[in-house]
Simulated assay, not measured.
Amino acid sequence: MPDSPIAVVGAVIVRDGLVFAARRSPERSAGGLWEFPGGKVDPGETPKQALAREIREELAVTVEVGQRAARCTTPVGNALIDLDCYWATLVGDAPSSSTDHDALAWIAPADLLERKWSPADVPIVQAAFLELDRAW
Rank of each mutant, 00 (worst) to 15 (best):
A70L: 01
C72L: 02
K116R: 15
G92Y: 06
T89F: 02
A70P: 03
C72D: 12
D100H: 15
D84K: 01
A120D: 13
T89I: 02
A105F: 10
V91N: 09
L104A: 03
H101M: 05
L104F: 06
C85G: 06
C85I: 10
D84A: 00
V122H: 11
L113G: 10
D82C: 04
A79D: 11
S96C: 05
H101L: 05
K116T: 15
H101R: 11
V122K: 15
A88P: 09
V122G: 10
D93A: 12
D100Q: 14
E114K: 15
D121R: 10
E114M: 10
A79Y: 09
L104H: 04
A69G: 07
L90C: 10
I107K: 03
P95Q: 08
L80K: 12
P75A: 04
I81L: 11
V76K: 02
I81W: 13
L90M: 09
P123Q: 04
A110G: 01
T99A: 10
K116N: 13
G92H: 07
T73W: 00
A79H: 10
S118C: 14
I81G: 01
D121A: 15
D100T: 13
D93I: 00
S118Q: 14
D100F: 14
P123E: 04
P75C: 01
A120N: 12
A88S: 15
L90Y: 04
I81M: 09
N78M: 09
G77A: 10
R71F: 01
P123K: 08
T99I: 05
L83D: 01
Q67L: 07
L80F: 06
V122F: 07
W106C: 05
W106M: 12
D100P: 00
V65A: 02
A88N: 07
C85F: 11
D84W: 01
S98A: 13
I124Y: 05
A105E: 13
V65L: 09
A103I: 00
L83S: 02
G77Q: 09
W106V: 06
A88D: 07
D111Y: 09
P123A: 02
A79S: 08
T99W: 01
T99N: 01
L104T: 04
D111P: 08
Y86W: 09
